[in-house]
């Protein structure tokens, strides 16, 4: 078994009349891309994995004024391999001015024994819009999860919007009521764009309020976006909770109700 290195790329261009054309669709097995709609691409995994030692990179470049939807046909099952290095998946996405990206692949399942690193670098232009969902399942049914670390960096015109690391399968966080509790899956959706910009004058007394449900929350960020975060017992429950949060985030763009002010002693 030898480690695989692959670099796939999706790039759009404006085709006139506000339409989008896929300018580049470069597969690199096991990252195989299929166009499934005028502005939609599915990631079709060809081959098992990723396995330890594999290094996969997906570039997504959404040109100004265009829109793109990226999905995947099935879940990604991360497996242990023979190499003593982790498997790595890097997604670099740039969304241009006035462009829209919807990125919602199926979950990443961290099978027992895997060591996986997921890196997302998302650069948004000032008035770009994005919907970015990420779901991680802690092992197949009934097994202990492998080890995983996911880093997510989103910037708007170079300013930091969201920077997060998720650690899975580490002793300090496993089973901690502060981190995942007894959940077996964690997911988040970033919905960002000019429609989610915070009020012009930052004021701690008027911090926007989150929408909250059972196992999910839609959290208005300090910058122009909302992060839905959810925990679930299984992938089905996780998706259902994320959907509720996404709906809450999308249907009621952040408002500024008078917050309950904290005592200021």
């Amino acid at each position: 078994m030898t480690a695989v290195t692959a670099r796939a790329l999706i790039r759009t261009e404006a085709a006139g009349g506000g339409r989008t054309r896929l300018e580049t669709l470069r597969s690199d097995p096991p990252l195989t891309l299929r166009q499934t709609g005028p502005r939609r691409v599915h990631l079709v995994s060809t081959g098992a994995g990723p396995l330890r030692g594999d290094h996969l990179e997906l570039g997504v470049d959404v040109a100004p004024g265009t829109s793109l939807e990226v999905r995947s046909v099935g879940a990604t099952l991360v497996l242990p391999g023979l190499a003593d290095t982790p498997s790595v998946m890097v997604v670099r996405a740039r969304v241009g001015a006035g462009a829209t990206l919807h990125f919602s692949p199926e979950p990443t399942v961290l099978a027992a024994g895997c060591v996986h690193r997921l890196v997302v670098r998302l650069s948004l232009a000032e008035d770009a819009t994005v919907f970015w969902r990420e779901e991680i399942v802690f092992g197949r049914h009934g097994e202990r999860p492998g080890r995983g670390r996911a880093r997510f960096d989103a910037t708007v015109a170079g300013r930091p919007l969201l920077r997060q690391d998720l650690l899975v399968g580490e002793e300090a966080v496993d089973g901690s009521p502060a981190v995942y509790g007894d959940a077996r899956c964690v997911g988040s959706t970033l919905i960002a764009g000019p429609a989610w910009a915070p009020p012009a004058v930052p004021d701690v007394k008027r911090e926007r309020r989150a929408a909250l449900g059972d196992g999910w929350a839609a959290l208005p960020l300090a910058g122009p976006g909302v992060q839905v975060c959810a925990l679930g017992a299984d992938a089905v429950q996780l998706r259902e909770r994320l959907r509720r949060g996404e709906e809450a985030a999308a249907t009621s763009p952040p408002t500024t109700p008078p917050a309950t002010s904290a005592p200021d002693g």
């Binding site: 690391d165 981190v179 964690v186 989150a210």
Partner: peptide
């Protein structure tokens, strides 16, 4: 600074928002 740790704890987020209620 962009590379500093950002370790998130979803349960803490849910607890913090629930606390306000």
């Amino acid at each position: 600074w962009h590379a500093l740790p950002g370790h998130s704890a979803p349960a803490l987020d849910l607890l913090a928002e629930g606390h306000l209620t």
